[in-house]
Write a protein that binds this DNA or RNA. Structure first.
Lengths: 351, 351
DNA sequence: TTGTATGCGTTATCAC
DNA sequence: GTGATAACGCATACAA
């Protein structure tokens, strides 16, 4: 590995001059600059980011912590962040917290000593980790919370408009004629799940539709939970005709439960998701969902970090990215007792 | 940020002693050790990995480069590597090459100056990047190629048993009675695609089944390519009754093409995939596929890096992970002209 | 315009 | 057992 010292010797200048060339200071005579550059090229010299970081007390790394990269929601977020970071000369250090605060905390404490430019985090536990985050801020690293925000966090954050998206989705189901609409929420200790539930409730309230307590099922954000809770809903005497699922994985689980129960989606039950994962187009039926511009979440977070490093001292911002509905095959108008378009009779439900 | 110097002063010892405590050298008197440790705890001191790295000329980072984390194949690989790395005190720096050699090369050159312990790479271009890889080796970093291996690479590598898996899958289709079996391969400049094609060919040869040239379609490893090439196959006068797709995304595209053509999968055409992505269970029909233990690929690669760092000087190893078939709904026995189980008549094909 | 010297936080070597 | 010091590669303040 060539070092700045060798370059200096070979170019017949001091290391200070080489450093000035490297950092494009205008105070270097053109002839000198050329000579140094030639040597640099010929040796394929790359300045040591390690040495530079130690000296400047800052690296070009952005630490990004997500619960689990194999959850199909996160690759998009990571990719969005990575793209923006790369374009601006920053590099991403990816960590899976495994939804385990202990692991997240270990990552945070250790990686801070690399003096990263920033920390982008989808926290595992909303009630913890604030001291670690503050330690980053104190050390001069930007911190951005993404997707889930601890209630006490007062710094930068990026989320989707969970409440609004859920509200629009539910309103759409209501417009389709549904009156018995249930929801399967995510874990309610998380802000996103709470807000999506709030949006659902607001739409139902505005339409003066009742929401029996059994119509609100709390689940994990995965297929298994969605399937399990949907089974409960489908067994109810007053079976809902539509389900608003708090994310697409839950919705896919619900579709599976419906199929198992011998019900047709959307003829017997409409199912709405949230996320707009890439696979939504491939499921049968294709999933109607709230598109939350996943990669944008990461991209905006990375941009905040970059701006902060560049000296942006403005007040903490909470970027709320609007959602939009993607209507596909899993939702449809409420079928009445009359013959349907497909010629099948709709059996009146027992309730 | 507390430094070793402050710890030394507060504990009333020299920095050398603190360092000895940190590195658990036995030559520290127990009383001193306790005193130093107390100060460390009270300040929440974490040693600077930056300083340590500069001094030791090595960090605990492993650079991992994949083409695109949003391709559902890679999160599993990354996760497998990250888990093993984390357990052993290493951290993963994730990079997307975007299948672009220029970007991959930029990452490789720059991140090398962080003196990572290793490089785990799924290369974008099999014909390039060898000098960069060698530079890592020269700098004392382990290098492991994963999934795709440049033909001239003589170092460590981890792949699935592509040829064997494809062979088994094709044999299965043959055992189901299919005789007109086509394949949609991945890009044939990649080793994995070539080997899967080879396995397909071997099974067909052994069964003395002809493979007309139109029955081999080259595609990208994505849904769009699979759909497009399947459309070509399905238009052939001698339409195949089964397709072996070189990966699951291609297979999903093929299923879509079949649906568009009004064909039933698996009644009219059997489709076999490769990868065993998590979503395979969710498609309709569920996809029969070759399971290649995705996370194991990353895990084994990380383990190699760790072993090399620990001093393993043995000859370069190519770990070849066996595959196994996952039979689901997208494949079935060849239907003859007789009435099928569903009562539908199978129309004789024009060919 | 260029060179020299210092220090970033750590480990390792060598006195004591 | 412990302390003092050099060195890792670089940026920077200051001298020349």
């Amino acid at each position: 590995m060539a070092t700045i010292k060798q370059i200096a010797k070979l170019a017949g200048v001091s290391i200070g001059t080489v450093s000035n060339v490297l950092n494009e200071l205008p105070s270097v005579r053109e002839a000198t600059r050329k000579r140094v550059l030639t040597v640099i090229d010929s040796l394929g010299y790359q300045p040591s980011l390690l040495g530079r970081a130690l000296r400047k007390d800052q690296t070009n790394m952005i630490v990004m912590i997500v619960p689990d990269i194999t959850n199909p929601f996160f690759p998009g977020v990571v990719r969005g962040a990575e793209d923006v970071a790369f374009q601006n000369g920053y590099r991403l250090v990816l960590c899976n917290s495994d939804n385990d605060y202990a692991k997240e905390s270990a990552y945070m404490r250790e990686l801070r000593t690399y003096r990263p430019s920033g920390l982008i985090i989808v926290p595992a536990d909303l009630s913890k980790g604030q001291e670690e985050a503050r330690a980053y801020l104190n050390a001069g690293s930007a911190v951005v919370y993404v997707d889930r925000i601890p209630s006490r966090w007062r710094g930068d954050a990026v989320t989707s408009a969970h409440e609004e998206g859920a509200y629009e989705a539910t309103k759409h189901l209501i417009a389709l004629g549904h009156k018995r609409i249930a929801t399967i929420t995510g874990p309610l200790q998380g802000t996103s799940a709470v807000q999506r539930l709030a949006g659902f409730q607001r739409a139902m309230n505005e339409a003066r539709l009742p929401v029996p307590t059994q119509y609100i099922q709390e689940s994990n954000f995965n297929r298994a939970g969605g399937c399990e809770k949907a089974e409960l809903l489908l067994k109810l005497r007053a079976r809902p005709t539509a389900i608003f699922a708090a994310n697409d994985l839950i919705a896919m689980g619900a579709i599976k439960a419906a199929r198992r129960a011998g019900l047709s989606c959307p003829d017997d039950i409409s199912i709405f998701g949230f996320d707009n994962l890439e696979i939504d187009d491939e499921t049968t039926p294709a999933l109607s969902t709230v598109d939350q511009f996943i990669s944008e979440l990461g991209a905006r977070a990375a941009q905040i970090v970059i701006n902060r490093v560049a000296g942006d001292k403005s007040a903490a911002k909470h970027i709320c990215i609007p959602t939009c509905l993607r209507l596909r095959g899993s939702t449809g108008a409420l079928k009445t007792r009359r013959a349907t378009a497909t010629g099948k009779k709709v059996v009146e439900r027992k309730s």
